[in-house]
Design a protein around this nucleic acid. Sequence first.
DNA 1: CGCACCCCCTGCCGGC
DNA 2: TGCCGGCAGGGGGTGC
Length: 269
Amino acid sequence: MPELPEVETVRRSLAPLAGREVAEVIVREARLRRPLAEDFADRMRGARVETIDRRGKYLLLRLDRQQTLLAHLGMTGTLALGKDEGILRPHDHVIFRLTAGGRLVFHDPRRFGCLELGQGDDFDGVRSLGPEPLDPGLNPAWLHGHTRRRRCPIKNLLLDQRVVAGIGNIYASEMLFEAGIRPGRAAVRLTRAEVSRLFEAMQRVLRHAIELGGSSISDYRDADGKPGYFQLAAAVYDREGHPCRRCEQPIRRIVQAGRSSFYCRQCQR
DNA sequence: CGCACCCCCTGCCGGC
DNA sequence: TGCCGGCAGGGGGTGC
């Protein structure tokens, strides 16, 4: 799944969708993370896409009549514009045919993603999200306000979408390396200086990843089907046993909350 | 409330 | 070569 940088890359690549109208929706597989509503295709017909927004890892396609098509890509989802004549692949679950030709295809082998039609921003998943990590109004004091109240490992806090929206397993490890903080450290025990470093690392890593067009792990592609290139720059993620790019010590892997964390024992304390 | 654990699903990779 | 277990970027539910 795409994390914030990948979803942002998809959002940008969907810009040509603005102003287009949905002629017909074909649901080939309704059993997504949350099953598609029976009347989804009927309600989407004739809708016009106005703009495409992002909140955390969610895409919000603003439609006319205050309607919003909410999309989450889960782990393996893609949302891509294509031509009418292309052959549909396995796991192309929902096809939005556009009136002036072309189509938007929701593809997701693992089906952890979902699509939902609603009004405005009125979705449970969106309501509970914390702020955007690149919001110019945020500062280290804001992050400290969260870390000082939580005893959980700092890695888990970064993954909590209610604290800050859009960080996932890759970038959590990357920003902790950048800040020189081990993923298992209790959030509450971080010093102000460490929280400041982490805040700066969070914004730097995410900005950099967006510039590079997101990560290119396994089946991630943007809406044009182009892979991202962040993996070439990953300092620790999925590099267990490989030498740290700074000190050459082997990168370690631990499991936290059922998910892998990668870090350097030398560079992170 | 916080957190560890387990589940959802398919595909891929490494080990045997 | 082929099969099997483990693991994968997500989130949500349960039970302690």
